[in-house]
Design a protein around this nucleic acid. Sequence first.
RNA 1: GCGGGCGUAGCUCAGUCGGUAGAGCACCAGAUUGUGGCUCUGGUGGUCGCGCGUUCAAAUCGCGUCGCUCGCCCCA
Length: 416
Amino acid sequence: MIQAIRGTKDILPDTMHNWHYIEDVFRKSSAKFSYNEVRTPIFEKTEVFSRGIGENTDVVNKEMYTFESKGGDSITLRPEMTAAIGRSVLQNSLIQQSSVLRYWYFGPFFRYENPQKGRQRQFHQYGAETIGSPYPESDIENIALANDIIKSAGIKEYQLLLNSIGNTESRMKFRQALVEYFSGIKDQLSEDSQNRLDKNPLRILDSKNRNDIEAVKNAPVITDYLDEESSNHFNEVKAGLEKLGIEYREVPTLVRGLDYYCHTVFEFQSSALGAQDSFGGGGRYNGLLQQLGSKKEVPAVGFAMGVERLLLVLEAEKALPENAPVPDFYVICAGDSPREYSLNVINKLRSKGHNVLSDILRRSMKAQFREANKSGAPYTVIIGEDEMNKNILQVKKMETSEQKEISVDDLDYIKF
RNA sequence: GCGGGCGUAGCUCAGUCGGUAGAGCACCAGAUUGUGGCUCUGGUGGUCGCGCGUUCAAAUCGCGUCGCUCGCCCCA
């Protein structure tokens, strides 16, 4: 039997209403904040991501679906959206036409990882980017949108973790202090963290390894290394969130795995998720567009949410809608002769905007009733030879088994 | 890339000491010749994930492999 690619899933009709539910939240919350939807191609030239995300991140190093096109270009299925939007903004000169861009997106992304709970090779993200402003208002608005989505979707148990990793100068000083500290106790670190020491020392901070956690306890804290600009920015972000009543927990060890982040970084967590407790995250990325070739710095903030993870949280909190939509009418034919005639009735109902279901298996009346019952349709319309000849219909209210005879033209006024 | 658990009907699962496969649910039909749900009766549905090996004989034992799942890493 042919199987779907490892780490991919069919989204079948029985769960589709959950997706429609959450997608509706995405649209409505985005609109509240006046964000506009963008759709970019599923694949890009590999350099969009290798330059944008950073060569020594795991995402770029070992998780990208990369292949050569017939023309010889290296092409990659998008593992995230921010770099792709950066490319689009530059290519279309969007920031020249409007000094602030507010974008949101929803779609599939691809990473070559081992699947587990809340982790697939094709997964979906919603995200929003606030591009063009270096000021804390921009961070605040972006986080407020993320928070609005979570609240609107119906999630109650979650945490917003917040940190600042400062501007480049602050981060370099902190990084140096970290390397000095960890080098002194290198033999106490996990093998992974020993490797991270020269590649990406900040990542040691959120290691889950027990020895590392111990070692991190006495490590230098980023907050002590923020210069005036960085700590002012961070303080204003925090003050803004408090003004909006958005609760957060400051976590000085929160760092993120993509190279483009600076200043504000944040993450949304839920205990409903198991090992992948984060269902959304983001931060400021002032340097990204320059990495992609912009002559000027274009400051920006953004976040992404894992939609499968969001749905897992919603399911755990029983916040998902119960039922898929049901038809208004199930049209039943008694015997073979009215079948062709019934098309008129079905068509008439549909043209009035009703959702109609009917049998296409030429089954017995009993079977049609069974299916009508299963479909949840509140009314059945029964057409037999008599009804056809007299131009009338039997309409039955399923819940009460009441049945009335009405003329075809009165279909609209069925009321029981 | 590394580690643990699990693969028997569409679904949830049983299957004793190795003897050629079962239940409930779902689906289909009948009991009721033009009326659903409840009940009863019957039926369809299986290369026991796949391959190799051991054996007179494998769902059962061994090895390999594929898949699912949970975790490490990383991320959403």
